Simulated scan of single mutants.
Amino acid sequence: MSVPFPEPTEHVSTRTEVYLRYLAYFRDGVGRRVEAMTEDEARRSRVPSGWTPRELVRHLTFMERRWFVWGFEGTPVDDPHGDEVDGRWVVPDEVGTADVLAAWRRQAEVTEAVVRRHDLDEVGRPSERWDGEPPATLERVLLHVVQEYARHLGQLDVVAELGGGVTGEV
């Protein structure tokens, strides 16, 4: 079942819920598109830059971990940039798309727990994530992550369309 678009006129009790609903909507779009692909299609690049749908999902997993766990909460994580080698997204060949999607879903649960533990106006803990700059508020982190999902979902729509897969707001 698809997550409905969070209509601007729909009553939501908190700003946190607004952000989490948009995040859930964009995550659902990513998941539905990649789940509808065959393993071969998820491993195939259809763009000049060379990324594949499963690499994009793994990137989203690491991106959330970098922003919420390592960044906002300041918790050390092993290899925060483990989704990249020489500036390119990677997934080890032996890791299947189902495993990539499962790890992504687990990270989504962690992210939601982090968001629900804190107030949107709370400032993140200082950590290496901020490269010496003052940490951002949770609201700014959420806004950044929502826009990153929206951008990547648009890219994935094009790739899915080229492969004859699921696209659009269905």
Rank of each mutant, 00 (worst) to 15 (best):
G50W: 10
W51Y: 07
T52F: 04
T52A: 09
P53W: 09
R54Y: 09
R54F: 05
R54G: 00
E55W: 10
L56E: 01
V57A: 10
V57T: 07
H59I: 02
H59T: 04
H59C: 03
H59F: 00
T61P: 04
T61F: 02
T61G: 06
T61R: 06
F62G: 09
F62N: 07
F62T: 11
F62W: 14
M63N: 13
M63S: 15
E64G: 14
E64W: 00
E64Q: 13
R65W: 04
R66K: 05
W67H: 04
W67Q: 00
W67L: 06
W67R: 00
F68I: 05
F68Q: 05
V69I: 13
W70P: 07
F72R: 01
E73M: 03
E73R: 08
E73F: 11
E73Q: 11
G74T: 03
G74D: 06
T75L: 10
T75H: 05
T75F: 02
P76F: 00
P76L: 07
P76R: 03
V77C: 02
V77D: 03
V77S: 03
D78I: 05
D79E: 13
H81F: 15
H81M: 12
H81E: 15
H81A: 15
H81Y: 15
G82H: 02
G82P: 09
D83Y: 13
D83H: 13
E84C: 08
E84L: 14
E84I: 08
D86H: 15
D86G: 14
G87P: 10
G87K: 13
W89S: 14
W89T: 14
W89A: 12
V90H: 12
V90I: 15
V91M: 06
V91S: 07
P92A: 15
P92Y: 01
P92C: 08
D93N: 14
E94N: 13
G96Q: 12
T97M: 08
T97P: 01
T97F: 08
T97R: 08
A98H: 08
A98Y: 10
D99A: 15
V100K: 04
L101C: 05
L101R: 06
L101V: 07
A102E: 11
A102H: 09
A102D: 12
A103C: 04
A103D: 12
W104L: 09
R105W: 07
R106Q: 13
R106N: 11
E109W: 02
E109V: 10
E109P: 00
V110W: 06
T111H: 01
T111V: 11
E112N: 05
E112H: 08
A113V: 04
V114H: 00
V114F: 00
R116D: 06
R117E: 09
R117V: 01
H118T: 02
H118F: 03
D119C: 03
L120K: 05
L120A: 04
L120C: 09
D121R: 13
E122T: 12
E122K: 10
E122L: 06
V123Y: 01
V123C: 06
